[in-house]
């Protein structure tokens, strides 16, 4: 593992990942509105501005070699809309988010394929958690991303690029302790020994996968959780 690029906005997992990766002998770069300006990130002028796709297309591996790219989740409001304006806003939000992701995924794959391959991981929150706690991501966007990853993985494997999704249920961590009793009890119908998955543990698990040079998985949605995950209910 030479370098890792994190694409997305800050959340508990991205923060934990950054912290875990900082303990490894690997360069970590970030792409997103929050990323600090000025530092070289693979472009000769050190410019982070412009679209993520443009930055990926212009990435200079001789300045900042990377072979791991991680896409964080995107929050999309998904309350049931009632007015024509609200319907359009929701549809457009999904259209924009998915198109943006697909274009970035394409650019990320192109970048790694040109430079001896690597791993791409797409973080997709466990959507079954919606029945228990409020979550910020949309099942529409999530399922679309997973299907895109499964398809793309088939195309790009021969170029030594592995693409997978990590299914996480970090929303449970965000429920205040005094409000946790009800959702916790509801998980008992599925698994009495349900445990939250702390972001640091999930980040550690992902770092292990990132570090494995001969990772034996691609085109998968890898669930992370104890006692209850979306695909094992």
């Amino acid at each position: 593992m030479n370098g890792v690029l994190l694409i997305g906005e800050p959340d508990s997992l991205m923060d934990a990942l950054r912290a875990k990766l900082s303990g490894l002998p690997v360069a970590v770069h970030e792409l997103g509105d929050h990323a600090p300006a000025g530092a070289p990130v693979g472009r000769p002028d050190g410019d982070r501005q412009g679209s993520a796709v443009a930055v990926l297309d212009a990435w200079d591996m001789s300045i900042a070699p990377i072979d791991r790219i991680i896409f964080g989740p995107v929050a999309i409001e998904h309350d049931l809309p009632r007015t024509a304006d609200d319907i359009e806003r929701l549809a457009l939000a999904h259209e924009t988010a998915l198109l943006s992701f697909l274009m970035q995924l394409q650019a990320a794959g192109r970048l790694l394929a040109r430079h001896r391959g690597g791993q791409i991981w797409v973080i997709t929150p466990d959507q079954s958690a919606r029945y228990l706690v409020p979550i910020s991501t949309s099942p529409i966007d999530t399922m679309a991303r997973r299907a895109a990853v499964k398809s793309f993985a088939r195309e790009i494997r021969r170029m030594d690029v592995l693409v997978n999704c990590l299914e996480v249920q970090l929303e449970f961590d965000q429920v205040p302790a005094d409000q946790w009793r009800t959702p916790r009890n509801r998980t008992n119908v599925y698994a009495s020994r349900f445990r939250k998955s702390p972001a640091t543990s999930v980040a550690g698990f992902l770092c292990g996968l990132l570090a494995q040079a001969d990772l034996p998985m691609s085109g998968l949605v890898v669930p992370v959780g104890i006692g209850l995950t979306e695909q094992s209910i």
Partner: peptide
């Protein structure tokens, strides 16, 4: 997922 159909698969997964 199906190869050669990334956008189509994404739309149908959606």
């Amino acid at each position: 997922g199906t190869d050669g159909q990334v956008p189509y698969s994404a739309s149908k997964g959606g």
